[in-house]
Write a protein that binds this DNA or RNA. Structure first.
Lengths: 206, 206
DNA sequence: TAGATTGTTAATCGATTAACAATC
DNA sequence: TAGATTGTTAATCGATTAACAATC
């Protein structure tokens, strides 16, 4: 499999959602420009992405919604399903647990960790909570490869180190610091404060 | 003022935080590669960004932390301060309200809206809550230009339309749909589910 | 067939990095 | 001065868009 940029993967995930909705509406065929319009990008981009995927549309007919959706699912999903760990049961952590609770069969947050004993040993939004000390053991036992960091900035690096030691291969980091990890561990940062500052900048009268 | 990409603005916001922390540690001078290292980017990038900004470092000495920080603040901040509105007081909305509560003097969420009357007419994390029906009036009265959308996907477009009508110039959208707005309104999407799927993809054994 | 959309390559665009003379 | 870092331009890189023959 050739190397595919993370932007492409993001767009495929976007196409998937659009295709699901399209299917629910009962539409069977879709043109590249229709998909592009919903995704907010160019039709050429869509065609190129689907080409990478190897899925073929037909001239005049466009793409078969059902077939394309299956193709993307097969590409994006692990057939065995994937478990995710979340570290930091604060407001944001809870919001994310709630959002993903039972929503996708193939991707679920199966363990949450915190240092505060009052927050652990319970179940939040159907996710089991553990003390941070159990991180290594639980993650190894469950074979979890993906983690979400929602701890304060000053604890993020320590948590990332532990996660890597436990075998985590990909991290979604909400803490406003860049965590240092080995080059083969994928890290995606979401810095909400930074993004809000950016939006505020561009919403000012110039 | 020449046109500056949103990526540059994001990096400047990042530099600001790093500089603040640096200043707290008592460090007075900083080289481009040190800033670059903390920000997780190349030194050349940092130098180019600061050049755009017009701030000059000195060979051998590097950049003056205090002076550079002031320069970035002046560039990014509206001296009068900026108010932000949040629409959708769910788990994520609450988490964001909590996160920004009193944290920055120059950028604060001053109004939150929801359709559920039980959630409105109160104060959450020191932010006044209103019913969605009051959106136009409150935003115009307070002169708010920036908004955060944390409503479900099917309500996002309707909310965006109202926001634009109320005079909003920039939107941070957490709903998993692309909202259509006039071309002069800045929209930044944060699609947490999509990003998590992306991270999950890259954390799979290849 | 005529018309429209596709797969695929080439052209464009923008962002990032490298290089190096200038300078403290 | 010698050494290191800067400002600034050129080179590289990658991603996006345009173009067009192939095809249903």
């Amino acid at each position: 499999m050739k190397k595919i940029s993370d932007k492409v993967i993001g767009r495929l995930s976007l196409y998937r959602r659009i295709l699901r909705e399209t299917l629910i509406l009962g539409t069977r065929k879709l043109f590249s420009y229709q998909l592009a319009n919903s995704a907010g990008i160019s039709a050429a981009q869509v065609r190129q992405d689907l080409m990478i995927l190897g899925y073929m549309g037909s001239p005049t007919q466009g793409y078969d919604v059902h077939g394309l959706l299956e193709c993307i699912e097969e590409f994006l999903d692990d057939p065995a399903g994937q478990s995710v760990a979340l570290v930091g049961i604060g407001n944001l952590g809870r919001a994310i647990l709630d959002y993903f609770s039972g929503r996708r069969p193939n991707l679920s947050i199966d363990a949450a960790f915190d240092i505060n004993p009052e927050k652990t040993n319970g179940v939040i939004h159907s996710c089991r909570c553990y003390h941070l000390d159990q991180l290594l053991q639980v993650i190894e036992e469950k074979g979890i490869l993906t983690a979400i960091i929602t701890v304060p900035a000053d604890q993020a690096q320590g948590v990332a180190d532990r996660l890597v030691r436990a075998g985590i291969r990909g991290i979604l980091n909400f803490a406003p610091v860049r965590v240092k990890v080995p080059p083969d561990v994928f890290v995606q940062d979401i810095d909400i404060a930074m993004v809000l500052e950016k939006v505020a900048y561009f919403s000012r009268p110039k």
